[in-house]
């Protein structure tokens, strides 16, 4: 009897490993395939897709970088992501602190508003934002002769930061609310003002939450493409990496430039993958800490 169950157990274990390995392969293989395809020569794409590359054709990356302008787009992506993260932290940290630890009139109202913001997805409001900027540009044109709201990386970063506010404030407030007030009292008695207390005492303690926020928002800003596509309208102007990649996908359908498409894919994926490998533990833990993100 006992032997039978252990034999069954073994079979069950083997079965589990097979299923898990299959799923892991299904996830890893397509990603690895892109890396392999990125060093193939264009002619190789007409043969068996599973064939190993004949040689390391790094020319693809050079072509993607210069001719497909992925280099420029990379720069825009870096600027927008960094700027949006900076704005987000500067704006969200004090707001979350005040909303979670001070009693003032309107506090409850604003907290509820930000909570409600969690349910508003940017996909619904991207067109109104676009129209608002179009109208703003028209207005600016009538006064200054030029509009600068569309095709502007700073405005894009502002929109990113604004749409990330509800989640960020929600997560930070949750953390700030758990801190005992003794910290502020001690700082106050030592003669520190509100600002100093916040910056020197409270923010350093929130470091783990801040790192989580940077991680999640980095991923969402870097990967975002709907807002970027809508607000950066100039076909010859600047774009972010994912939007540039979409252009490459469409170009590939007509001109069959496979090599540079997959090189472009690698360029978009690599930063997130490297970051993920460095901080994967933090990320999967942070997810449960922060609750849900749709």
């Amino acid at each position: 009897m006992k032997e039978k169950t252990s034999a069954q157990d073994k079979l069950y274990k083997v079965f589990i490993y097979v299923v898990l390995a299959t799923l892991a392969i299904l996830i890893l293989v397509p990603v690895a395939w892109v890396f392999m395809a990125s060093v193939k020569e264009n002619s190789e794409f007409y043969g068996n897709p599973w064939a190993l590359p004949a040689g390391l054709h790094f020319q693809n990356f050079a072509e993607a970088w210069t001719q497909a302008r992925m280099g420029d787009y990379m720069l825009s992506s870096v600027i927008v992501t960094a700027l949006a993260l900076a704005i987000l932290l500067v704006v969200a940290l004090p707001a979350a602190y005040v909303l979670s630890r001070f009693n003032f009139r309107g506090r409850k109202f604003f907290s509820t508003c930000f909570m409600g913001g969690l349910f508003i997805n940017v996909n619904y409001i991207v067109v109104p934002i676009f129209l608002m900027l179009v109208d703003g540009d028209k207005f600016l044109k009538s006064i200054f002769g030029t509009g600068f709201l569309l095709n502007n990386l700073v405005v894009l970063a502002l929109v990113y930061a604004a749409t990330a506010l509800p989640f960020t404030i929600y997560l930070l407030s949750g953390y700030f609310a758990t801190l005992p007030h003794d910290y502020e009292e001690a700082a106050y008695i030592d003669g520190a003002g509100y600002g100093l207390t916040m910056v020197k005492i409270i923010f350093p303690m929130a470091k783990p939450s801040i790192i989580t926020i940077i991680l999640f928002n980095f991923l969402s800003f870097w990967n975002e493409y709907i807002i970027a596509m809508t607000l950066l309208t100039d076909p010859n102007g600047t774009r972010t990496l994912p939007v540039g990649l979409m252009g490459l996908t469409q170009a590939q359908q007509s001109a069959a430039q496979y090599g540079r498409l997959y090189a472009g894919l690698v360029l978009v994926m690599l930063p997130t993958l490297i970051l993920y490998i460095c901080v994967q533990k933090k990320l999967t833990q942070g997810m449960t800490l922060g609750g849900l993100k749709g």
């Binding site: 704006v91 707001a95 003032f104 604003f110 930000f114 619904y124 109104p128 749409t163 506010l165």
Partner: peptide, 27 residues
């Protein structure tokens, strides 16, 4: 204190209102 609260909360509220509340109402 009042000014502190104001300067801390105002930027977030303004950004949130311009780019989330108004567009949502506009929909």
């Amino acid at each position: 204190r009042k000014w502190f609260i104001f300067f801390c909360a105002a930027p977030a509220i303004i950004l949130f209102t311009i780019f989330m509340v108004l567009p949502t109402l506009n929909v």
